[in-house]
Design a protein around this nucleic acid. Structure first.
Lengths: 227, 227
DNA sequence: CGAATAGTGTCTCTTAGACACTATGTC
DNA sequence: GACATAGTGTCTAAGAGACACTATTCG
């Protein structure tokens, strides 16, 4: 067996939400070297007795002050190029999806945390520290893909939501327009995607819309297809 | 910043191939502790200046003697539960798909390497060391899913193959029967999936079958659907 | 010739997408 | 009433799956 390698292990987070009908990602201003003062994804080192998912949850709480918020958290991928961080850190990235929430409170390690529009960040390869542009790209693509075959879009919504609100999530994540009438029919005909709560709302104006909750389905049959 | 964590980093490999119309995975008999004498997936520690993918390629060569073989290699997922290995090792698993090849030669660290039928291994949670049953489960599911929307099945075939051989790959990986006639029509109508070489073969008996190569498509439109 | 495998045609059912139309609220 | 949004109906084209049929080899 080779000698133990001096490698540090961290998790980074791609935290996505939909605000003002656009997809946003949580960024922090780094308060420490390397890349002090630069924008980056939140993250931190894995503790000796910690599971990777626990690290991700802890960092999410520490750096954003989000607590009691329903969050979908899944592993994204790992990044281990020797030059990605001068300290030789490999990172296991996690993807987090949360409903439109209050502004994040700047955490302990981060000088500040804020929501950044994803589209603009993706357009510029050099705005994020480390290889975080790649991580963000992978995270957004994962979210876009999973919206097709899973009910993940509901992770961006409040507990109760209208089908129009759900559609706005799809439009924001996919950065594309969707026909409201076909969307409505598809969602309501896909078994287990959403269930009616019985309530209605007029917060959009016009005819009151029925309210729904996430249904029991884990996979969508048939899938929602990207335009 | 917390103190550096003493965590070792390794890669493990889920190496799949189709032999005798069944899906097989490469296993090794562990020659060292922990789990000495048990069956496990091949793998090993990441070296200080090595990219994760390089580690996976190196381990694949070292433990199986496979060289010059076309191999599809992609990252699968990372496993980091504190109790998964008494030495506190987190593992980045890779999925490798290779054409039906010669028997693997036992490598340096491994007492022996051999192909094991996947179906039987999946049925028994305790035949593999560490959390390798879970890793295998995840790897097989990844392969099954990607056959739907990518031309990955060709990674199991020789450079030139017939559509019937391609179908046998799908049947082995999905562990399901497929109608040969509909399959043939679908494959040939999906743009870029396969391209004719001009040659034919009668190795199956019966009417000579046209030979194909992998086409340029990276994604299949429309996808092949699991039964 | 028969057996075996390769490959095509055709039918039915489901779904995607375009878009006309109806429903129900506010102003 | 006008207007806005919610929700339904209908048409067309394409694909999935069932399966009859034709094609080309070997023995």
């Amino acid at each position: 067996m080779p000698k133990p390698t001096k490698i540090l292990v961290a998790t980074d987070l791609v935290v996505l939400t939909v605000r003002n009908e656009r997809l946003h990602v949580l960024t922090v201003d780094r308060g420490v070297e390397p890349f002090r003062g630069h924008t980056a994804l939140p993250g931190g080192l894995v503790l000796p007795n910690e599971d990777l998912l626990d690290t991700a949850e802890r960092e999410l709480a520490e750096e954003t002050g989000l607590s009691g918020v329903r969050v979908h958290l899944e592993q994204l991928a790992s990044y281990g190029h020797p030059d990605r961080d001068p300290r030789r850190v490999i990172s296991i990235a996690y993807l987090a999806l949360i409903p439109d929430a209050a502004d994040p409170t700047a955490g302990s390690d981060a000088a500040g945390a804020e929501w950044a529009p994803v589209i603009e960040l993706l357009d510029h390869q050099d705005r994020l520290a480390f290889d975080h542009h790649r991580i963000l790209t992978d995270g957004v693509e994962r979210a876009r893909a999973k919206l097709e075959y899973s009910p993940l879009a509901t992770a961006f919504c409040s507990d109760e939501f209208t089908i129009a609100e759900l559609r706005q999530v799809y439009e924001a994540v996919w950065n594309a327009g969707i026909d409201p009438r076909n969307f409505h029919r598809k969602v309501s005909k896909t078994p287990g995607f959403v269930v009616e709560t019985g309530g209605t709302t007029t917060r959009q104006g016009g005819r009151p819309a029925k309210l729904y909750r996430k249904g029991p389905a884990e996979l969508l049959h048939p899938p929602m297809l990207r335009p």
